[in-house]
């Protein structure tokens, strides 16, 4: 690649710019400032509250030290246990589906020139719809008596299914809706990743006579691994926070079939107004998700090393 010609100016600085402390701080401090300002207090607050019992009298908070009792109580909370189990299934199934579909669609649409903008516009559509509308709309479409899906099945001669009401299909239905909703997220990022890949590598591969599969596995995939990792991390975190859709679709039912952890958390933290216990649950969830990410990342490192 050529050095931009317009930049051939007087040679003044010899050393690398990375040494320039002023620039280093200038570029980093806005982000640092905003994060310090707006994230430290909520997180510290969460941590402190998780060791307290908080009640209200005469309009002000009464905080008493509760030690680890909230964390102990987590172990006995059956709703929390059910929520965690379902969230694991939900998160991994949904995120895996979204990653695979998103990557597939991105690869395919990067191969075409005609209609590319149209495909891209269509594939982005679902994330433009607010979560609460997704919940309401899919609830109607999956309705047992009147829903579009059961009407479609009836045309094929298949009996109507109780998609959201039967314990066997409820979680699966929620996962499908989530895949529909969030695949665009992965699609968009993978497409951007593919577009920024250097073209000369592909040309070289083609000259070497690589097949499409070989090209994908040996050239494309290794190059977009960083994009995949970051996309996976953020999708996983978002999947653990899933709320709006479940709220209108099933509210966690039937029984606890679709109870997700963010739902339990909302119930305990907000509805029941147990700030101390809710904070402990938040910290526990943050810890678990962090642990998952660390495991996933180190697994990738090991795979890359071998």
């Amino acid at each position: 690649m050529t050095v931009p010609a317009g930049l051939k100016m007087a040679r003044k600085h010899g050393a690398s710019f990375g040494d320039d402390r002023l620039w280093r701080w200038l570029t980093f401090s806005p982000a640092l400032g905003l994060m310090l300002l707006l994230s430290v207090l909520p997180l510290v607050n969460l941590l402190i509250s998780s060791f307290q019992d908080i009640s209200w009298a005469d309009g002000s908070a009464v905080r008493t030290f509760a030690g680890l009792s909230s964390y102990h109580a987590l172990a006995a909370d059956t709703l929390f246990a059910a929520g965690l189990a379902n969230t694991f299934i939900f998160a991994f199934a949904a995120v895996a589906g979204q990653m695979v579909l998103g990557l597939g669609l991105a690869l395919l649409s990067s191969k075409v020139t005609r209609g590319r903008v149209l495909y891209r516009a269509i594939f982005i559509l679902p994330i433009l719809i607010p979560g609460i509308v997704i919940g309401a709309i899919w609830k109607l479409m999956l309705n047992y008596d009147f829903g579009l899906v059961n009407q479609g099945l009836a045309l094929l001669g298949i009996m109507p299914q109780d998609w959201l009401g039967a314990p066997e299909t409820a979680l699966l239905s929620v996962i499908m809706v989530d895949i529909w909703h969030w695949t665009p997220f992965c699609f968009l990022l993978f497409l951007a990743g593919l577009e920024s890949l250097p073209q000369d590598v592909f040309e070289a591969a083609r000259i070497d006579g690589a097949s499409a599969w070989q090209e994908f596995f040996h050239v494309t995939l290794p190059l977009i691994i960083p994009t995949i990792v970051v996309t996976f991390a953020f999708r996983l975190v978002l999947a653990f926070k899933v709320f709006d859709e479940v709220y209108l679709l099933t509210s966690g039912g039937p029984g606890t079939a679709t109870e997700v952890v963010s739902f339990t958390l909302y119930q305990r933290f907000f509805t029941e107004d147990r700030i101390g216990y809710g904070s402990a649950m938040s910290i526990a969830v943050i810890f678990i998700v962090s642990l998952l990410l660390v495991i996933a990342l180190s697994a990738r490192r090991q795979a890359a090393a071998s």
């Binding site: 990375g18 909520p42 926070k241 938040s282």
Partner: peptide
């Protein structure tokens, strides 16, 4: 730029942890 490695890692990890805070809180 030449930031000490720990600053980069701590900051990036911090942003990710922040992202996990439930909206209610």
């Amino acid at each position: 730029m030449r930031w000490p490695g720990w600053i980069v890692h701590v900051f990036l990890a911090w942003t990710l942890i922040f992202h996990m805070i439930p909206p209610v809180a």
